[in-house]
Amino acid sequence: MPFGTLRQAPNHYHMKPFLILTFFTLFFSCSTPDKGKSLFDDLVDKETVVINLIDYTLDSIPSEIGRLKKVQSLSIGNQRDTGWVAYPPLLARIEQPPFQQLPDEITELSDLKTLRLVGLDLNRLPDKFERLQKLDTLDLFFNKLTISDELEKLKKLENLTYLDIRGNKVDTADIRALKESNPHLTLRSGLE
């Protein structure tokens, strides 16, 4: 080929800048979060909310739970299992990690009357849990709570009429203390 003659580049060289630009456009459009959308946006105005953490690809309850100011009935679970088997013995399960905690923001849900926290590996309740004074139903089934450590918080829930603490570390002294502080309480402990 004589000097100064232009030669057309093979087609794959023309495509390279296009492919790189396309890759970066797709990568950044998929990885940049939607700044106008927050977790639980679709639930903010609801009075009854059921959250399955696995549907949100969450391992624990996020602090955004405090945004649900209008909620009166809240159920949170994690259905990663199709069922449960208490083997090894339940006490061994309770004392084994993973452990989860409720974010303090849940205590800002002042209209909450029913709270179900089932199978979440919770090992403690927030320090200001007694702020949930409208709470009349509390289901803590199958967590990893030591009820004697949570007694003072539970006794301060004066409107509580139903409490399920089955599947947690509980003893007869805990049951007696809860019944003395609230004689009208229907209590499910697994020790009945």
Rank of each mutant, 00 (worst) to 15 (best):
L21M: 06
F141Y: 06
V85L: 14
D59W: 12
K35W: 09
S75H: 04
F99P: 03
K144M: 01
G66P: 10
H14V: 13
T114E: 10
N11M: 14
S63D: 04
I106R: 04
T114H: 14
V85H: 13
N78D: 10
M15R: 08
P97K: 03
T137V: 07
K69V: 09
L140Y: 00
L151A: 10
L115Y: 03
R93W: 05
P98S: 07
T25L: 15
N11P: 12
K144A: 01
G77S: 11
D41A: 05
L122H: 03
E130Y: 04
E47Q: 02
S75P: 02
L39C: 07
A86K: 09
L140C: 04
N52V: 08
F99I: 03
N52I: 13
I147Q: 03
E95Q: 14
P89S: 15
S60P: 09
G119P: 08
L109W: 10
L135S: 04
S148A: 11
T82Q: 13
S31H: 04
L19N: 01
D121W: 07
F28Y: 14
F27K: 10
L43V: 02
G77T: 14
P62D: 01
L151R: 11
V44A: 03
L151K: 08
I51N: 01
D45N: 00
I147P: 04
W84P: 08
W84H: 10
P10M: 15
I65Q: 00
G119H: 11
D34V: 14
S73G: 03
V85E: 12
G77Y: 12
K37F: 01
H14G: 15
L140S: 02
I65A: 01
I61E: 06
G119Q: 11
E108I: 06
Y13D: 07
L91T: 00
